[in-house]
């Protein structure tokens, strides 16, 4: 059984060999290296880490200033809420005392711009260089039920390390990145804009799209929680796949090839 799995994994890797970008002999020794991440991906990835860090902390800061969620166009203390932090033992005053909201607002809107410009740069760059097509778009043969099921099973059984290739992304990985970049992040951005009196005056559709300013605020918050969960899984995957090599490859771009094919 184990051998069979191994063999299967082996073909997985060889099947993906066409997507190897370059490989070169390391000057240091016999280790073989592969160029795993382009400049673009590396630069944008770390700018994104900084921007998202600031967005999260400043976002929590803003949320604590009014730690209640509502649905529709209206929401204020005394109106029926869908979530209240005070129900969980933290009073509004306590939450508000965790900081002044200028800090949160200033940094949230500053790093929203960093996040947006960085994201557009990343997407544009990868479109032009064809990286999305080559590395992110799942191939047709990858999108079979059998393959997806195997990929999912491996993830659940913590076999990602053995199964993931150093040269390309897995199918679930590709799919989740694409959904994140082209569906989830745009929605998170729009739910943010839908709370702005300026942007909603210019684009009233933002208000209707999410069923109201307060709905947008609630979705923005729920979306943030989901995004944090995504990052948790992302980091766990990196740990499972070998944190040192993976993180190094996101800095230097180079990843050592496994010694014996896998």
């Amino acid at each position: 059984m184990r051998n069979a799995e191994r063999a299967e994994a082996q073909t997985c890797v060889t099947g993906r060999e066409d997507s190897v970008v370059t490989s070169e002999r390391s000057r240091a020794g016999t280790k073989e290296w592969i160029a795993r991440h382009s400049y673009n991906v590396r630069i944008c990835h770390w700018i994104n880490v900084i921007a998202c860090g600031y967005l999260l902390v400043s976002g929590i800061h803003i949320f604590l200033d009014f730690p209640e969620l509502y649905w529709g166009h209206t929401g204020y203390q005394g109106y029926p809420a869908i979530f209240k932090l005070s129900d969980w033992g933290i009073s509004w005053d306590d939450a508000g005392a965790m900081g002044n909201r200028m800090w949160g607002r200033n940094y949230h809107f500053t790093f929203a711009w960093v996040f947006l410009i960085n994201g557009l740069m990343y997407v544009g760059w990868n479109m032009v260089t064809g990286q999305f097509r080559d590395r992110m778009l799942p191939r047709r043969d990858e999108l079979t039920l059998v393959n997806l099921r195997a990929d999912l099973r491996d993830h659940l059984r913590w076999l990602a390390r053995k199964r993931t290739s150093t040269t390309s992304y897995g199918t679930l990985q590709k799919t989740s990145y694409l959904l994140l970049i082209f569906v989830f992040v745009p929605l998170l951005t729009l739910t943010g804009l839908a709370q702005s009196p300026g942007f909603t005056a210019a684009m009233p559709a933002l208000l209707d799209m999410f069923g109201g300013r307060q709905s947008a605020r609630s979705l923005h918050t729920i979306g943030t929680v989901l995004l944090v969960l995504f990052v948790v899984v992302h980091v766990l995957e990196v740990l499972a796949a070998g944190a040192f090599n993976r993180v190094r490859s996101m800095i230097t771009g180079k990843h050592p090839l496994p010694e014996e094919g896998l």
């Binding site: 200033d65 009014f66 166009h73 209206t74 929401g75 203390q77 909201r101 702005s196 009196p197 300013r213």
Partner: peptide, 12 residues
């Protein structure tokens, strides 16, 4: 119109 408070609440 909706009064949009910077804290996050809004009321019409």
């Amino acid at each position: 119109t909706a009064h949009v408070c910077e804290q996050g609440w809004s009321a019409i």
